Simulated assay, not measured.
Amino acid sequence: MDTFALVVTIGVALFFTYTNGFHDSANAIATSVSTRALTPRAALAMAAVMNLAGAFLGSGVAKTVSEGLIETPEGSTGMGILFAALVGAIVWNLITWYFGLPSSSSHALFGGMVGAALAGGTTVYWDGVLEKIVIPMFVSPVVGLIAGYLVMTAILWMFRRANPHKAKRGFRIAQTVSAAGMALGHGLQDAQKTMGIVVMALVIADVEDYGDPIPVWVKVACALMLSAGTYAGGWRIMRTLGRKIIELDPPQGFAAETTGASIMFGSAFLFHAPISTTHVITSAIMGAGATKRVNAVRWGVAKNIVLGWFITMPAAALVAAASFGLVHLAFL
């Protein structure tokens, strides 16, 4: 196996993690910044540190990504498939970042994997795609919407006799904890996705076996790149999540972040399902915001976001398939 191809593929995987960080950093901190619970730079620094910590909390999601979605391709063609999958995901991340659309980096990666695998003649495990990707893609936002609404309703009932100004101050402080939980969950989920890709590259290169534990350097590299990307910030998407969906107050921000973090931890530890942090926090914001009044949520913006969810996987798959075609013509 060409060592150069392995190094390039791992490098592109780490760059994808970086784009994931600045694309999805808004997921963890947009609500805290928009309610002024945290300053933007303090929020980004906290999110970067918690992303780093979250990356070391488990490996179940990485195993799903590396073994559960496509058959491990072999040789130089296999490395080309991985490279093309990552290019598809990166291109879609950059397009959606430019337009400020909080689409899912995770589904861009999965779409890229499927598109490149089909173009390269590698088997796609459609049962795994359905059970681990498609079903959670639909279920997690619904759970986020309902849970966000219920958590916010419970908060309103529990603090119904509290002084509104004191309560808001208290929830601003509490949001530091809930935002940290979101960032930890983001690290747990999203760093592992790239770990899975790097492990697959190492298996193709016959450097590692699937039975081996994930090398420490892989965890450290993926975690550091995710943290670096997070610290770079994704201001365009942050504006969409923090302001354009609904004007959040601290209790709503706390409810949305607590809901999102709980769903991410549950899916990672109980089901090893690589869910989208974007989907979860966006739907939780909508659910928490709807307790104010249903029309307080700007459903037109929400509709555009949901449309982005549906086109992410096929769009990334098409870019990845085209990328594989170019790689095949040039190098294979």
Score class of each variant (00 low, 15 high):
Arg41Asn: 12
Thr39Glu: 02
Ile173Glu: 02
Ala228Thr: 09
Thr259Met: 10
Leu248Ala: 15
Ile81Asn: 13
Gly120Asn: 15
Asp127Gln: 07
Ala30Arg: 05
Thr31Trp: 02
Ala45Glu: 04
Ala55Trp: 00
Ser276Thr: 11
Thr77Trp: 02
Leu69Met: 14
Ala26Thr: 07
Tyr231Phe: 15
Tyr210Phe: 00
Ala223His: 00
Asp249Cys: 02
Thr258Arg: 04
Asn163Pro: 06
Gly144Asp: 02
Ala53Phe: 09
Tyr18Val: 06
Ala45Arg: 03
Cys222Leu: 10
Val124Gln: 03
His186Asn: 12
Ile29Leu: 10
Ala147Lys: 01
Ala273Asn: 04
Ala174Pro: 02
Pro73Thr: 04
Met225His: 04
Phe324Ile: 13
Ala30Gly: 08
Ala288Lys: 05
Ala154Pro: 01
Val301Phe: 02
Trp309Leu: 03
Ser25Lys: 06
Ile214Leu: 00
Gly300Gln: 09
Gly181Arg: 05
Gly253Lys: 08
Ala43Gln: 08
Phe269Gly: 00
Leu248Arg: 14
Ala268Val: 06
Met200Arg: 01
Phe99Met: 07
Pro136Phe: 07
Arg293Met: 10
Leu14Asn: 01
Arg172Gly: 05
Ala296Pro: 05
Val129Asn: 10
Gly185Glu: 12
Ala261Asn: 15
Gly300His: 13
Ile155His: 09
Val91Gly: 14
Ser32Asp: 12
Gly325Pro: 14
Ala179Gly: 05
Ala26Cys: 08
Lys303Gly: 05
Gly229Ile: 08
Ala117Leu: 13
Ser140Ile: 15
Gly148Met: 04
Ala205Asn: 15
Ala55Phe: 09
Arg160Ser: 08
Gly11Asn: 15
Phe83Ile: 11
Leu94Asp: 02
His107Lys: 12
Leu82Val: 12
Gly120Ile: 15
Met225Gly: 07
Ser25His: 05
Lys63Gly: 07
Ala284Pro: 02
Val139Tyr: 03
Val327Asp: 01
Gly185Val: 14
Gly234Val: 06
Gly112Glu: 02
Leu307Ala: 14
Thr123Arg: 12
Ser178Phe: 03
Leu6Arg: 11
Pro274Arg: 13
Asp249Val: 13
Tyr210Leu: 02
Val306Leu: 15
Glu67Asp: 13
Met113Gln: 11
Ala179Val: 01
Ile305His: 02
Ala43Ile: 06
Ser283Gly: 11
Gly111Met: 15
Trp309Val: 11
Ser32Leu: 08
Gly60Met: 07
Gly128Pro: 09
Ser104Ile: 08
Lys63Arg: 10
Val65Arg: 00
Gly148Phe: 10
Ala268Met: 13
Gly287Asn: 03
Val216Pro: 00
Asn295Lys: 15
Phe83Arg: 03
His328Lys: 13
Val216Ile: 10
Ala256Cys: 04
Gly196Ser: 10
Asp206Cys: 07
Pro215Arg: 00
Gly325Arg: 10
Val327Ile: 12
Met264Arg: 03
Leu6Ala: 10
Pro136Ser: 09
Pro274Lys: 14
Ile281Glu: 03
